[in-house]
Design a binder for these strands. Structure first.
Lengths: 113, 113
DNA sequence: ACCTTATTCATCCATATGGTTGAACGAGAA
DNA sequence: TTCTCGTTCAACCATATGGATGAATAAGGT
């Protein structure tokens, strides 16, 4: 009933908001492409739990998967994170525009004194 | 039973990962400090729902509250968002370090040819 | 005192999320 | 074929989340 929205930015932020998933990204950034089992071995969670985390990251575009034989090699993708950066910058620029407008308004008033 | 972790960065990202909450931040960045009721009026949700969203943003430090008479004036705080930026930059630098190491390794090998 | 306004608190609901365990699948090795 | 390995799929569970509605609180206006 409750329309479940899902935009790229929302998916990226949601994926990044879990500490385990951020750890996975850090691990991949450090060590490069890594097998699912290998990744799971670094955490005190079941293989399945980690597998699910990876799927979330994958859905958000934060990692890519390359299947070689029976092994799934996971690689971090930095590109989508730029979306967060962009959102942050947009918000900040909106905020600064208002402050600038406010300041010039005050300056104007001072001129009228 | 499941240890519920909550770090500043996690709270910030979780707070930012909801579209409604991001809209509230944008609204506040544009219009400046605004009353809760005023904010709620901009959304097709109950006052209570918006009130709860604001509490989440507040807990993450993304907005501050100033109670004047019976009115609660909400203001956006940009500072905590820098944490996201920092995390992103850290991750990227870890990633670049690995690539640099990889590249210099390859160059070395070429030198040995 | 009583009304009105602004907001939160308390419940309750449906769905999402993070976790577990066990079965299933795909593909090389014995 | 049967075994093992790497991984996902399918249930299932407890808790979190986003939403609604109605009561409670706070404080000025009448």
């Amino acid at each position: 009933m409750v329309e479940r929205e899902s935009t790229p930015l929302t998916d990226i932020l949601k994926a990044a908001s879990d500490p385990t998933r951020r750890s996975i990204l850090t691990l991949l950034a450090q060590d490069g492409p890594t097998r699912v089992t290998e990744i799971a071995a670094r955490f005190e969670k079941s293989l399945n739990a980690v597998s699910k985390h990876i799927k979330v990251l994958e859905a958000a575009g934060l990692v890519s998967r390359r299947t070689a034989w029976r092994e799934h090699i996971i690689e971090v993708r930095m590109e989508p994170l730029v979306e967060i950066d962009r959102w942050f910058r947009d918000l900040r620029s909106i905020w600064e525009m208002r402050l600038d407008a406010l300041e010039s308004l005050l300056t104007e008033e001072n001129d009228n004194d």
